Structure formats: structure tokens, C-alpha cells
Amino acid sequence: MTTASHHAHDFHVTRDHVRSAAMGMGVVFLLVGILGMIPGITTQYGGMAFASGSEALLFGAFQVSVLLNLVYLAMGAAGIWMSRGIMSARNFLMGSGVVLLVMWLYGVIVGDSVANVLSTNASTNWLNLILGIIAVGLGVAYAMRHRGGDAVR
């Protein structure tokens, strides 16, 4: 009877993984930003405002505004651009994750008040929280695997 090496079950976060993750997150952000500007995909489109007070809902669930869509578009472009290099891809994942977690916290604190300049609702806040955790997690996983100048695969 043979046994598999303990390494056979390990998942190694490689250069390709971190670059692909940054590219993937960038594409997701671009899509969200673009789709948030398309009538029909975004319901109540006539109620979209630049910032505070927008009533537009992406897929009928995620409250969006022009400002929020621009934030997603900027993050998407940054993700695609930064996915070209290993360290920039990791920095994008961690940075965009932190931005999303700050946006989530901001949305939770301001709620439906006039201070909600991004015009987010609970669904948008959950989306920001989940994407933020995923992005930071991928960036940290790569950093932990390759700390101290370890050789990369």
C-alpha cells in the first residue's frame, strides 16, 4: 500500500494564482460597474442619482448610484492593470479588499441616512463585505505563502 505525500493535498498559492485572482476581481468590478449603468439590468433606472438618494437597483437588489458605479469601474480597471505583476496583483487584492471592507463598514454605519453618499443598501453592503473578505484573503494567502523571500513556484 502506498500513501500520497502530504504535499499532494496542499494548495499552493502561486504567482499565476495571485495574478489570475487580481484579473478576475478586476473583471468582476468592471462588470458590476458597467451593469449598474444599463437600464433593465438596473431596475428603477430613472431614480438613479449621482450619489446620495439613488433608488436604482442592480438586478433589482443591489442599490447603486453613478458614484458607486464609478468606484467599481475604477477598481476594475486597477485590478486588470495591476494583475500584470505579482506584487502589484497582491497589493491590488489587499488594497481593494480593504476599500470594500471600509465601504461595507461605512454603509452599515450610515444606513439610509443622507450621509450615505454611495447610496448603498443592505444587499450592496453584503456584497462589499463578501468581496472584501475574498480579496483580502487571497492577498494574505499569497503573502503568507511567500513571506521572507521564499522561492515561488
Rank of each mutant, 00 (worst) to 15 (best):
L101I: 05
S88K: 13
I80R: 02
Q63T: 09
S52L: 00
L57K: 14
G79N: 04
V71S: 03
G33N: 07
M75S: 06
V18C: 01
L31N: 06
V18D: 01
A74M: 14
V64I: 14
S83H: 05
V71N: 05
T43D: 02
G46F: 07
G79Y: 09
G33T: 02
M75H: 04
V99W: 13
G107Y: 05
T43P: 02
I109G: 06
V102W: 05
A21D: 09
R90T: 15
Q44V: 04
Q44D: 15
L58T: 03
L67N: 01
G107E: 10
V98H: 02
Y106N: 09
G46L: 10
V32E: 08
D112S: 15
L73M: 10
Y45S: 06
S119W: 07
S52Q: 15
Y106K: 05
G79K: 07
M25P: 03
A115M: 13
N91V: 00
M82W: 11
V66D: 07
V114C: 00
A77D: 01
V32L: 14
N69M: 02
V71L: 15
F59L: 15
G79L: 11
L118V: 11
L118K: 11
N69K: 11
V18K: 01
Y45L: 03
M87G: 07
L118G: 09
G46P: 02
M87W: 12
L73P: 00
S65G: 05
V27S: 02
S119E: 01
G46A: 15
